[in-house]
Simulated assay, not measured.
Amino acid sequence: MKRFDLNLLYTLDAFAKAGSVKAAAEMLNLSAPAMSHALARLRDVTGDPLLVRAGRRLVPTPRAMTMIEEARDVVERASAILAPGIDDGRWSSAKREFAVIAPDELSTTYGARLLGAIRAKMPNATLSLRPAVSADADRLRQGAVDVEIGAIGKLPPEMRVEVLRKQQAVVVVHRSHELVRQRMTLTRYIKADHVCQAPHDGLDQLVERALAGAGVSRNSVLRVATSYAALAAASQSPLVATVQDSMVQAVAKNLGLVSVPFPLGLEPLHVGQVWHPRADLDPQHVWLRTCIRTVLGRR
């Protein structure tokens, strides 16, 4: 497909408005020779003289008259397309389904609250919370997913990331457990039977590294997929669970659980939201990120 220099339409439109080569050049911040050269290129492209002399003036040919009207429409439409966006608020009433990748425990604990926050300003919005199956940035790049929430690891350089909270590990047992009445020590911790999470869980990996650094290991008798499942197991047995403190704050009391500090110093786990820069200025996406920050973030 042959491509034309669309700047030539601006040249013709400026001449029609200014009435002379010199005035049109000033309008476009060009020199008079550059303007004359642009008009010459326009004549070559169209095969029409476009401007002919009538005394001391240049007047448009019939073909030029037709082109001037069409060029004006194209220039006005292009200017409207390229103008900075104006937030007229209409985005808030539009229908939209947000797709967010989040760990199961966040979906279980905060999903309904997040939807409520989103619909406070976007009443026609829906929310699809999807499990984290792999570290695949292509879903964000292609727009199939709006935001991914989780432990912040190595990311492609173009991705945007915002830290929402720093999670600490805490030890959780049922309120009837004998460890509730004792001071939690490393010896008592490793002698207990533990419910642990899937090996790929970020917090579980931190715990394992800390224990290995101390030259000890825990007795894992049950392994589950999520921290919420670990809490559920601990609520129905003498098993010990080690989970992020945010989960304890959200659900532990209702499950009859209590928490004590982890017996070793442990670096915090940074949890954040990740998105592609294509959505930086989308007002609906900005609102989604604001709601995620409000519901999941920690001041």
Rank of each mutant, 00 (worst) to 15 (best):
V145T: 12
E162V: 11
P49I: 09
V286I: 14
G89M: 03
T242C: 15
M67K: 02
A16W: 05
R119H: 05
T242V: 14
D201N: 15
G150Y: 06
D201Q: 11
A229W: 02
F15Q: 05
L203T: 08
L239Q: 03
W91N: 00
S237M: 00
N219C: 02
M35A: 09
A34R: 11
L28P: 02
A229L: 13
D138T: 14
I68A: 00
S220Q: 15
P60I: 06
S246E: 11
T242E: 10
E158K: 10
W275E: 04
K2I: 14
K121F: 01
S128M: 13
T294K: 12
I81P: 06
D5K: 10
K95Q: 14
L239Y: 06
T290Q: 09
R63N: 11
G116V: 09
S259D: 05
A230W: 04
P49Q: 11
A137V: 00
R293S: 15
V274Q: 08
C291G: 10
P123G: 09
E69Q: 04
S237L: 06
A34Q: 11
A279K: 14
L281E: 13
D282I: 06
L8A: 10
A117H: 01
I86L: 12
R183N: 09
I292K: 04
C196Y: 12
V260R: 11
G55D: 06
L30E: 00
R218F: 07
A210N: 05
T226C: 03
V271P: 03
L264P: 02
P261K: 11
R223C: 07
G215T: 10
V21H: 12
A83E: 08
W275V: 07
L129T: 02
L269G: 00
S217Y: 06
G265P: 07
I101Y: 07
M159V: 06
A135Q: 13
S176K: 09
I86N: 10
A32C: 08
D44I: 13
D204F: 05
L288N: 04
E76M: 12
A54E: 15
T46C: 05
W91Y: 01
L42K: 04
G143T: 01
A144H: 14
H276G: 07
Q249I: 10
S246V: 12
T108R: 15
G143K: 04
A225Y: 04
V251K: 00
R183E: 12
L58H: 07
V251F: 01
L186M: 02
A78Y: 14
L269R: 03
A210S: 09
P283N: 04
E158H: 10
S227N: 12
C196M: 15
R53S: 14
R139L: 13
